[in-house]
Every structure is written in C-alpha cells, then in structure tokens.
C-alpha cells in the first residue's frame, strides 16, 4: 500500500506563542487505512488535523497529501478535495435549512452540473444511511444524524480521505455507534481513508493503526494491540486503554497470565475463561 498523507518533521506555533504546538511531528497515513490519533488535551492532535488539508500550514517541515505540498497555494483546492474534515460540533457545520441542500453545498461550490450534484448528494446520503431524511430540517435531527449529514457533505466531494476531529464527543451512545459504524463502513467498503481523532479508547479497537501524540510529537504508534499493551506508558501520557485491556492489565498485576493483544469483549472474556480453567 502507498501512503496518502506524509507528515515530516512538522513544527508549528500559533501566532504570538513561544512553545510550538507541533514539535517535529512525523507520521504517514496509508491509503485506505482506518487510523486513530490519540493524545491528551493540548497534545497537538487538533492542530495536526487542521494541517492535513491545508487549513494550517507548517512553519518547518512538510506535509504531502497525495504528493501535493500543502504549502503550495495552487494545489490547495485539490488538497481540500482529497481530504475532507468533520468537526466535533455538528451544529457548527450545518449551512442550509434542508438536509439535501446542506450536502449539496460542497459540490455546488465545485461548480458541477446539476445532474451530477443530484447524483452525488443522493449517493452520499445513502452511504451514511440518511437518504430518507433528505428533505428534513437539520436542526430537528439527533446529534448522530446531524454528524452523519456532515459526513455526507464531505463525501459529496468524493474525497479519498476524511479527517474527523472528535466527531462523537457530543453524542449519546446510539449516536456514537451510528457515527463510528458509518466511518468504518466507508473505510472498509468504499476504500476511503479515515483519520479519527478521539478520546474514546474503545473507538480505536478496530483501527489499522494508532498514533499517540504528546507535546506535539508522535510518542507511540502501532496496531491497537501493540499500542494498548503499553498500559503504563499510556497512563503516563494522561490516557487510558480500553476497559477490556485495563481489566486484563489489573488481573495480570494480581498474578494472572494472558496472551498479549486482547482487545474485544469476546477475546477478553475467552482469555479470562481459559485462565480460570
């Protein structure tokens, strides 16, 4: 597999600040992968996210999106078509008073012919399972539904990658399931690269790759099994591990032995069951 985004030694400071928020951040994101970025508040995750489609550009180092340098102003439109963004608060992302108009906003701005816009809007709404709500008013939808409409708005641009910055932080459990289920499906079925920034460790269990950020650097990376096996170092970063890993870790401290890399509820229950027998 080839990489769609390459972040190399990126340094970034907000204006007037001395301390850099990103301090030699380096990572690569594979085309078609489901990637999760973890880190404590202030670790630089959201600042990094805004670099991935050129909302911010690095002071030092470089970011290439599908081979395009994000500092190349001429390429900015192409970069934003390649990488779409979804933010935390769905209410801040709605621009129209009808769901399908909202989803049509980006393709309209791309200057596409009406038939093409219609086709893209319908396709995008079907992909997030919101087609039947196309004529509804966004403010009457639930949080999870609004967030799926926001995702549809991004899909309508046919991006190859979607970056989601804590898209479930404001949602109830059902909304969280809807959104996480939707983005996993977009990744696995439609080959869209997903970069998910989250504080919910349980959302990272099915990722292909997990990056942990601290003080503007990537301090740990690997598969979820690899990353979540380092319970102590994650805790030192102000993070936790999924409850499954936490339980097994605590049992290990009490003398149990388990095979490494157990993360799902099923694996966890089976590991405990065989350790007791």
């Amino acid at each position: 597999m080839s990489s769609i985004i390459q972040v190399k030694d990126v340094v970034f400071r907000y204006e007037g600040e001395e301390e850099p928020v990103l301090n030699k951040t380096t990572l690569e994101i594979e085309q078609g992968a489901f990637v999760v970025i973890l880190g404590h508040n202030g670790s630089g995750k959201s600042t990094l996210a805004k670099h991935l489609n050129g909302i911010l550009t690095p002071d030092e180092g470089s970011i290439f999106v599908d081979g395009m340098d994000t500092r190349d102003y001429e390429k900015l439109l192409d970069i934003r078509r390649t990488v779409g963004m979804v933010f935390q608060n769905p209410d801040n992302q709605m621009v129209a008073s009808v769901v399908e108009d909202d989803v049509a906003f980006a393709p309209e701005n791309l200057g596409l012919p009406p038939d093409e816009i219609r086709a893209r809007v319908d396709e995008a709404l079907k992909l997030v399972d919101m087609y039947e709500y196309r004529l509804h008013a966004p403010h009457l939808l639930s949080g999870g539904q609004k967030q799926r409409v926001a995702i549809a708005g991004v899909i309508a641009m046919r991006p190859r990658c979607i970056v989601l910055d804590e898209p479930t932080a404001m949602l109830d459990p059902a909304g969280r399931h809807e959104v996480i289920g939707t983005i996993k499906r977009l990744c696995r079925m439609n080959g869209i690269t997903i970069v998910l920034i989250t504080h919910h460790m349980n959302e990272a269990i099915d990722a292909d790759r997990v990056f942990v950020m601290s003080n503007g650097k990537v301090v740990s990376e690997g598969t979820p099994k690899e990353v979540f096996s380092n319970v102590e170092s994650l805790k030192a970063e102000g993070l936790t591990v999924p409850d499954t890993a936490e339980l097994l870790y605590e049992l290990k401290l009490a003398g149990f032995e388990f095979p490494a890399g157990t993360l799902t509820v099923e694996e966890c229950a089976r590991a405990i069951s065989s350790a007791l027998k």
Partner: peptide, 20 residues
C-alpha cells in the same frame, strides 16, 4: 432506547455465558 451498558457489563455477561 439509544443507550448502552458499560463495556465491563458486556464482559461480565459474556463470562457468565462461558460458565464463569
């Protein structure tokens, strides 16, 4: 009704199904 149980509850339920 759109809610959930803690992950730990799910593990405990599965354990009971496995006769633990």
């Amino acid at each position: 009704i759109g809610l959930d149980v803690p992950v730990v509850t799910d593990i405990a339920t599965r354990l009971r199904e496995l006769s633990i």
